[in-house]
């Protein structure tokens, strides 16, 4: 336990926690993305959408071994703890960094290596906290931009992404996420001591691929709905229920 304390107090330990929790959150993003892309799958039956079945699966997975939504809430708790640690360590490190240079340079310091992505991590990260809150309010609790389609993800997506301001907001948010990941997805390996000159180019390319890929794939769903490629939903909730009963 003493070692955990020493580890947490040290700057290298804190950075390792930021890196490890960042890796967890990145892994979550990839799974989230795989789920989102189900919106493009053909409908298994008229008026039934694959992504709605997937959303049902997320709630019922683990039954009957665990009660409904147990697995979902476990994953949510892990993510919440990871996000909390990620933010707490960054806030503490940021304070320490400010204290390390009490008198600023008068001439604007030149930046020769740091990319904008690296320099704006605190800003992009702060925006992403705000985004996560709004995103959960919109698509998880349904309090924001309420759709009235209940649990039908497809219908909710259809309704939300026919409004230009939602499409625009999500596109900007994904761009900021990509900026955050461009530095983060490489930096986490360096913080964990896993980078070296042999791997560095590969890891830098990995970070670039992750940030561009995540932006394009996440933004494709709102773009597809806005452009009218996606069918209008049937009165979805009832139809899904019928389909489930028939099976």
């Amino acid at each position: 336990m003493q070692r955990v304390g020493t580890f947490y107090r040290s700057v290298i330990g804190k950075k390792a926690i930021v890196a490890a929790t960042g890796a967890i959150l990145l892994a979550f993003l990839v799974f989230h993305l795989i789920g989102n892309l189900k919106a493009f799958l053909p409908d298994p039956a008229p008026g039934v959408y694959d992504i709605d079945l997937y959303s049902k699966f997320l709630r019922t997975v683990g039954e009957p071994l665990f009660p409904r939504t147990t697995v979902l809430w476990t994953i949510r708790c892990v993510l919440l703890v990871a996000l909390g640690l990620h933010i707490a360590c960054v806030v503490q490190l940021a304070k320490q960094n400010r204290d390390a240079r009490p008198v600023a340079y008068i001439h604007k310091p030149a930046r020769r290596e740091a990319t904008p992505s690296a320099r704006w991590m605190l800003y992009t990260g702060s925006f992403l906290i705000l985004f996560i809150v709004l995103h959960l309010l919109q698509f998880t609790t349904g309090t924001l931009g309420s759709t009235g389609f209940g649990e039908s993800v497809y219908a909710n997506l259809y309704l939300a992404f026919h409004k230009l301001y939602f499409v625009g907001f999500y596109a900007v948010a994904m761009l900021i996420l990509a900026l955050h990941l461009f530095h983060g997805a490489w930096s986490l390996f360096q913080s964990l001591g896993l980078d070296n000159p042999d791997r560095n180019l590969g890891l830098r390319r990995f970070a670039m691929a992750v940030s561009i890929g995540i932006f394009l794939a996440f933004a494709s769903v709102p773009a597809a709905f806005y452009s009218g490629l996606m069918q209008a939903p049937k009165p979805a909730a009832q139809l899904t229920q019928q389909f489930e009963q028939q099976r």
Binding site: A118, M121, S191
Partner: peptide
């Protein structure tokens, strides 16, 4: 009282 590394490479 030194700061921490943000992997800027400056």
């Amino acid at each position: 009282g030194f700061g921490s590394c943000r992997n800027y490479a400056e």
